[in-house]
Structure formats: structure tokens, C-alpha cells
Computed example of a mutant assay.
Amino acid sequence: MNMKKIILALSAATVFATVADAQVQLTITGSTAFRSIVLDRIPTLFDTNSMSANISDPNKNQYYFSGTISNLIPTLGNQPITIRTSFSGSGSGMTAVKNGTLQPCINLDGSITNLAADLAFSDVYPASASPSIAASAFAQRVEVGVVGFVFAKNNALIGITNITREQAVLLMAASGDGGMPASYLGGIGLGAANPVYLIGRDSGSGTRISVEKDINFIGSPNLWATNGDGTYSLIAGLTSGGTVAKNIAGGTQAIGYVGLADFATITSVATALSYNGIPYSHSAVASGMYPIWGYEHLVSKIGMSANQQTLRDKLVGSITNAAYQSSAIYSNSFVRLSDMQVRRGADGGTISSLVF
């Protein structure tokens, strides 16, 4: 190779390296209970008319966004920004960020690329993951909201309006032909002797971890789903809150636990149960009367670039913005951080007052 060809090759390599360096990519995983907020805020980061997106995933787990963000972060100029989501559950997501586990991510053309996650949203503290994760495993952890959870019944279960802590524990432990007779939960009518089946999440889910810790359930729960002919069978848990909601809606003998955003999709066919006599409300969570809730955390991997950190901070700011947390899309399903009159330092931990 002569000197002219060497110089041209080096110049081309420099150009390609510069382009690669200029691209800013962010891959987000974690909580499915909070994904509606994340997916709502990401598009607002991009410059008007600059964004391309693939939001075709019917489960709303794998989304793709790309464009420029020069109005929000002037120093980025016209650098291409790509944000991908691959929601997998809180515990699973934090573990993936810690270990650098590749996540399946969709591209604009629908193809799949496996990428290491940079950020994970989580309904639980890192210590609640299985196995437990030390706080030092992440570059940063911030709280961006409060997530409430409810037990919800299919409306075909007549007479059931409340579930106690003891009933919830028994329902999780019940097996055999079903969770327990509906009459044990207050069911009446012809279906009172029929079994109730508990619908729930897989072990990496923050929703499952939160609920189990809040009711002090220890062990492996018996969870159910219907097969093709409508027969219930034991499973390890479902992979998203949306799938749990669909199974509650489609099962006349189903009770399950979900976050408020997922419950909102089935209110025409399902009802949230009071817990220990207290119906769910944001004010009941904020005052400490209703205990089944968790903080929404965002954890960051160690080694993010300065541009990735700036982009993360802008996303956090767009979520925690006081005006946004007062908007319907946030406040219909999540509790504002500023409204909390109580605090807990661990999932399922003691709830203490911030007022006195």
C-alpha cells in the first residue's frame, strides 16, 4: 500500500470514529409498572419534527426513538440521539444494569439488537433484588415517583370487596385445584364454592417483590394462568403488569395484583379490593394508611459517558417536574413525591411520618 492510500485509509477511519463518537445512545430497562411514564416523557426530549420512532410492540416493552435534542441540550447540537427501551421488570432490570447483561432492543426497521442497559427503573430498592444488589453497584440511584399497587378481582366474583393481609398470604400459598374457595374471601352466590386463582408476576418483578414484602409473604407463591382451553394451571409468573391485567380481565375466577396504570386498563371488568379495610387512594398512600406501595427508583450503570449522564438527568427532570407530576397522565396512576407525608427506608419496611 502506497503512502497516499495509507493516508486516505487513516482519514476514513478517523471520520468513522468521529461519527461513532458523536452518536449518543441510551438503553433503558426495568419496571413495567412505570413504563407508561417513561414512554410518555422520552418523546418530549427531542427537537420538534426531528424524531423517528418504532412503537409497534403491542406489549409496550421494546420501543425505539431517535432524533436530535439541541433545544434541550444545546451542546449536543445535531448529534444523533437514540433511546431504546426494553422493559423486563425491576429486579431483572437492575441486575442487567449491574452485570452488563444484553437486552433485546428493537431498531427503527423492526430488527433486534442486543445491547447492554444503561439505566433501569425499579419499583424496589436494589437490596430487594434477588440476589440482593449493593447500592455501590450503581453510579447513581434517584427516586422519581411513588407507585401504588392493588389486588384486583374479576367482576364475576360477587361479594368480594376486601382482602386482609392474612387472606392475601393464604391466597399466595394455596395450591391444588385453585387458590381458595371464593367464600373465604367473602364471595357469595352460586360461585362461592368455586376456587379463586391468584394471577401475578415473575420473580424479577418489582410489583411482585413490593406486594410480597408489604404483606410479609415469605416463600414461593402459587400463581396461575389459563391455557388454550381456559383451564387454570400453575406457572412461575407473568412477564408484565399488562399481561397480569389481561389475565384478570379474562378470568372469571381471577384475583391478581397490579400497579395502578395497568389496573386502569381493566376497570370496566375488574374492581380494586380494599386492603385491611382501606380502599386504595393516593391520599391513603401519602398519609401512610395504605401500605402497598413503593418508590420508583432510577439506577445508572457505572461508566456512562458525560453525554449519557446529561441525557439521563434531563429525563429525570422531565419526570420529577412538579407541573408534570400534577398532570393527569402522572397523577391518575402515581403519587407525587411532594405529597408524601410518610417515608420508608426499605421495601415492606416501617412507615414513618415526615410531618412529626
Rank of each mutant, 00 (worst) to 15 (best):
F263H: 06
A272L: 00
P279K: 12
T265E: 09
W293S: 03
A286I: 06
G294Q: 03
G288V: 08
P279M: 09
G294P: 04
Y290F: 14
F263A: 10
G294C: 09
G277H: 08
M289K: 15
T265L: 12
A270P: 03
M289V: 13
I266L: 08
V269D: 12
S283T: 15
Y295N: 12
M289S: 15
I278D: 06
L260F: 01
A261H: 10
S287R: 14
S268M: 07
T271W: 09
I266Q: 05
A264V: 05
Y275G: 02
D262S: 14
I292V: 14
S287W: 05
P291N: 13
I292H: 04
F263T: 02
F263N: 02
G288S: 12
S287L: 13
V285N: 07
E296W: 00
S281W: 02
T271F: 03
M289G: 11
A284Q: 12
T265H: 02
H282G: 13
E296I: 12
Y295M: 10
Y295I: 05
V269W: 00
Y295R: 11
T265G: 04
Y280T: 09
S287D: 15
V269L: 13
G277R: 10
T271A: 05
F263Y: 15
F263L: 14
L260H: 03
A286L: 03
